[in-house]
Design a binder for these strands. Structure first.
Lengths: 213, 213
DNA sequence: TAGATTGTTAATCGATTAACAATC
DNA sequence: TAGATTGTTAATCGATTAACAATC
């Protein structure tokens, strides 16, 4: 729609704003200034105003921001006003945990199909859904509306699975395999890599640095 | 040790370098230039050289970098040459998945104690370890060497659990609860937040943007 | 109207990229 | 020695912060 490109840094902060606004709403706070919010979130008020103004003027001079309105608006930016049916491929530890985790949430992101290549897992029920074989994936995708594909298979199989998902029409992949899927997929497919082990390594690095001081 | 502060951006890239070097090693590649590596990783050669030179001159003019040596050196920076015994608090979907996930890896990061406040879970065995009650946490930490604490409890209890861990001497927290634990803990405690739902929201935002184009 | 606080422009800061002299 | 490629300095780019006029 808009020509203006919004920087990755700004986008990555949106969910955090959303979370704080949810909290404020729950506390019954009706309005908040960038200054107050900045103190809570430990960022500068300037950054908050800059960030929000990428998307339009949501505030009002002399008043601040309406919490409920801002919350709802950011929610819409994050597309949380729409359903996101999901398929999960690889029902090992992580795939299983994500299935259960998303099942337990309000219905914004929710799994509708689980797939695994292990014949022993086929038919097992996880998060109220039967685990299906990989041979069923293509047909399932063509018959059901699916927004997002979760990849939770070993890295060796991840690229192949990603391609199957893309062939089935999936445009968004949430990837837990330790491989950079974004590098070898069509440009119109969005990928969010969650490299847990790398996150743990960063923690390890930071711990070590602190100890050396 | 060193006075020089290394930027967060650089540190966050280290695990990715490590991963590519591991791959190269597995392929039997002995040496690599910043240019070749940059093509693989889809970053600039300049950035690679800048990043690595934060930690010292690991390369050699006219030759490039020795893969095995660089791999090992970055591993040491990430403190992967040492054991990291872990306790996990909250053995729900995610805590359980992390316990199994880390159990299955080579012994660098591995759980040695699991804790949950739910009496029904007490005594259950996950990843070969018994789930213990929260009342046992303090004693366990004083008797066992523990590097890292994983928090996988609901956000309502996360701050409290974090404080218990810190009181028990834990200096590094890998946090899965949707709360910014770093804001209310002592400065010498390092926190790495893994906010999965926020990652999923970013994916949702990016998907929506792509569709609007 | 006066006070408060936004939206937005300008200034600063930091991170990335380019260029090249040093050196293996 | 000549060629290759690093380590490092300088230039550029982008993101954050500060400042303030606009305005509710």
């Amino acid at each position: 729609m808009e020509e203006k490109v919004i920087s990755k840094a700004v986008i990555s902060r949106l969910p955090r704003y959303y979370r704080y606004l949810e909290e404020l709403k729950a506390e019954g706070v009706e309005r908040i200034s960038s200054k107050e919010l900045s103190e809570r979130m430990q960022v500068t008020a300037s950054q908050i105003r800059q960030d929000l103004n990428n998307f339009g003027g949501f505030g009002q001079q002399g008043y601040g921001y309406n919490v409920a309105y801002l919350h709802e608006t950011i929610g819409k930016l994050l597309c949380l006003d729409k359903d996101h049916p999901i398929v999960i491929v690889g029902i090992g530890n992580i795939g299983r945990a994500m299935a259960e985790y998303l099942k337990n949430r309000e219905a914004v992101f929710y799994p509708i199909g689980l797939f695994d290549k292990d014949p022993e897992r086929k038919g097992q029920v996880v998060a109220d859904l039967p685990i299906r074989g990989m041979d069923e994936l293509k047909g399932f995708l063509s018959e059901n509306p699916v927004d997002i594909g979760i990849i939770a298979v070993p890295k060796e199989n991840a690229q192949e699975v990603a391609e199957e998902l893309v062939n089935g029409g999936i445009k968004a992949i949430w990837n837990f395999a330790l491989i950079d899927l974004n590098l070898n997929l069509p440009d119109d497919v969005v990928v969010e890599n969650v490299h847990l082990l790398e996150s743990l390594m960063r923690l390890s690095y930071n711990l070590d640095m602190k100890e050396k001081k």
